[in-house]
Every structure is written in structure tokens, then in C-alpha cells.
């Protein structure tokens, strides 16, 4: 079996070629939040909650841990500032849609949704 040497949050690992970031992270006890991922579904990679930072040399990118697989020696950061900031916004976008956000009830259109998102983001501050 071919392996790739990669790192997740600073841990050096040899992982099987094409192993999923999410699975390796779970094996390592690293929690990556997920939403659209489910064991009975094919990975779809659309909610973007599981985004992690991938670095390869000077190239860096946010990739969804539920579909991204290790094929090259890359570094993964599951909790960088960049990841946190982006993830917070994505969760805020979802929360802004929740029935508890009054601003989304239809009255006055959705004009306040942006603020709802900001509020939702504010409420989540300090959470992983």
C-alpha cells in the first residue's frame, strides 16, 4: 500500500494514499465539525462546515475535509485563524436561516438577514 507523509495540526503521519482527511483526523482524535457528511451518504462536500486549511509549499487553500483526500505530501490545519473565521461565517449563514431568527420571518423581507448573520456570528464567538 502506498503511503503519503503528511501532517495534521503539526502531527507527522504516514497515511494511506487517498485517505480522507476527515477519517485520519478522527483516528487522531481531532474533531472537525461536519454537517452534510453522513456515514450512509456519499461525501458531497457542500455545506463547507468541515473546511480545513491545506498548505503545500507556499500554496494554501481551504478544502472540505469530508471529500479531500491525501494524494500528495501536504500540511493540514484544522483550526487555524483562517479556518475559524470562514467556518464562523458559514455557520452564521445557516443560523440566519433558522426559524428562531425573527428577521427571517418574511416581515420586512430578508433585509435584516445580513445583520442576523452577523449577530449569529457574534453569538458563536469563542465557540470552536
Amino acid at each position: 500500500m502506498t503511503t503519503v507523509s503528511v501532517s495534521i495540526d503539526g502531527r507527522q503521519l504516514d497515511v494511506p494514499y487517498d485517505a480522507r482527511v476527515l477519517d485520519i483526523a478522527r483516528e487522531q482524535g481531532i474533531t472537525i465539525p461536519t454537517m452534510c457528511e453522513h456515514e450512509h451518504l456519499k461525501p458531497y462536500g457542500v455545506c463547507r462546515v468541515c473546511l480545513v486549511e491545506m498548505r503545500q509549499g507556499r500554496r494554501k487553500k481551504l478544502v472540505p475535509a469530508c471529500v479531500y483526500t491525501f494524494r500528495e505530501p501536504v500540511e493540514i490545519f484544522t483550526d487555524s485563524e483562517w479556518v475559524r473565521e470562514t467556518r464562523k461565517w458559514i455557520l452564521a449563514f445557516m443560523l440566519a436561516r433558522s426559524p428562531r431568527e425573527k428577521s427571517n420571518s418574511g416581515h420586512g423581507g430578508g433585509a435584516r438577514r445580513g445583520r442576523a448573520a452577523r449577530q449569529a456570528q457574534g453569538n458563536r464567538r469563542g465557540q470552536p
Binding site: V46, C47, W89, F93, M94, A96, G110, A117
Partner: peptide
């Protein structure tokens, strides 16, 4: 995907 679907709407609003 979430950011495009939801986010762009927020920007617009």
C-alpha cells in the same frame, strides 16, 4: 454550497 447560496444574498441585502 452554503457560502455562495446564503452569503451572496446577505451581501445583497
Amino acid at each position: 454550497c452554503t457560502p455562495c447560496r446564503e452569503g451572496v444574498r446577505h451581501l445583497y441585502d
